[in-house]
């Protein structure tokens, strides 16, 4: 009895260390602010090139963060390239069908989200490597289908021309990518700060226990898939509109599944800031290497992934002062 009373007498409602304070959002806001200011820096003669790198850094941020949202529900997917590609192709085909770009973009995202529900339903009961293999195979098949559709429909193996986004104005394109990343950050925060966080984390940390506690895995796993894949598709739209030419091999490349996964792990899994930071660091490293070697610059991702798993399991976020229970965002 006495033990319990002593415990009960302790300061019971001291601010829980895990509780998220508004201050936790500061680094994120800082990042978005810096990113917003980037085009206004004196970039000199290489402005166009630097802006393009920055654009694809934002795209990589959207990919990584959206992948992380799915991973939070315990679904470590290798199908992100599929939804990126479905976004790119969906957007291109909807434009071809005469939709205005502002409409084609969200419709392509929702379509990809819809397709992800099929994959999610089929992989519902799979976990670990079975899930990974199934999602990897799914990507290969989506690519095979697109590639084998009649050329008049989706361009076959050759690919498709896509009208340049926003008339090819690179500052406007950058602003759009920034807006979509900011949107993704908002979605990620919403997931973190609402009941979804508890559902996803519970499913990830003990699916059966979560179910016994009433967490409906069907609803939440599919929701995670839908949110994540729609956002990945938005990144695909940006890619298609920026490169104005897409083909199955590059668009559905495994690299597009590897990069977000590695980036999130390197930056810090299950956080909002981590994947965005990771994307910035890795994308810059990739560009530097890409300048000196033509092929194989993805070696960065392989190396970073291995080293993170062996020595940095909590990613960049784990390097900050030892905040074991930090209310990280």
């Amino acid at each position: 009895m006495s033990a319990r009373q002593a415990e009960a007498g302790a300061p019971v409602r001291a601010a829980p260390r895990r509780e998220i304070t508004p201050g936790a959002a500061l680094p994120l806001l800082g990042f978005l602010l810096l990113a917003a200011l980037f085009p206004f820096l004196p970039l000199g003669s290489r402005a166009e090139f630097l802006l393009q790198i920055a654009f694809f850094t934002l795209v990589a941020g959207i990919m990584a963060l959206s992948w992380d949202i799915l991973a939070r529900s315990g679904q470590v997917s290798l199908a992100h390239a599929a939804f990126y590609g479905l976004g790119a192709y969906g957007y291109a085909l909807l434009l071809k069908a005469g939709l205005p770009w502002l409409l084609a973009m969200p419709v392509a995202a929702l379509l990809a989200g819809g397709v992800s529900l099929i994959l999610g339903a089929v992989t519902m009961r799979l976990s670990g490597m079975y899930f990974a293999i199934a999602t990897l195979a799914f990507t290969e098949v989506v690519r095979t289908i697109i590639q084998n559709l009649p050329e008049s429909v989706a361009g076959g193996a050759t690919g498709l021309l896509v009208p340049a986004l926003l008339g090819g104005n690179s500052r406007a394109q950058y602003a759009l990518a920034w807006g979509l990343l900011a949107f993704t950050v908002l979605v990620s925060l919403a997931v973190r700060l609402t009941r979804l966080h508890f559902a996803f984390a519970a499913i990830r940390q003990g699916e059966e226990t979560a179910r016994v506690l009433g967490v409906s895995i069907v609803r939440f796993k599919l929701l995670a898939f839908f949110i994540s894949s729609s956002l990945a598709a938005l990144a695909g739209v940006l890619y298609a509109g920026k490169t104005f030419f897409i083909n199955p091999l590059e668009t559905f490349s495994l690299a597009n599944s590897i990069a977000p996964l590695t980036t999130s792990i390197f930056g810090g899994l299950y956080t909002t800031l981590g994947p965005v930071l990771g994307a910035t660091v890795l994308r810059v490293a990739e560009e530097l290497l890409h300048n000196s070697v033509k092929d194989g610059y993805l070696v960065v991702y392989g190396l970073v992934l291995m080293l993170s798993i062996l020595w940095l399991p909590r990613g960049l976020m784990g390097l900050r002062r030892n905040r074991k229970h930090g209310g990280d965002l």
Binding site: V76, G128, M129, A132, I258, L261, T262, I265, D295, G296, Y297, L298, V299, Y301, G302, L303, V304, L305, M306, I309, L310
Partner: peptide, 15 residues
Amino acid sequence: MLLTFGLGILLQNLA
């Protein structure tokens, strides 16, 4: 899984 996955990417891209 992720370790061997990283290894695969590493080897393939080294090649």
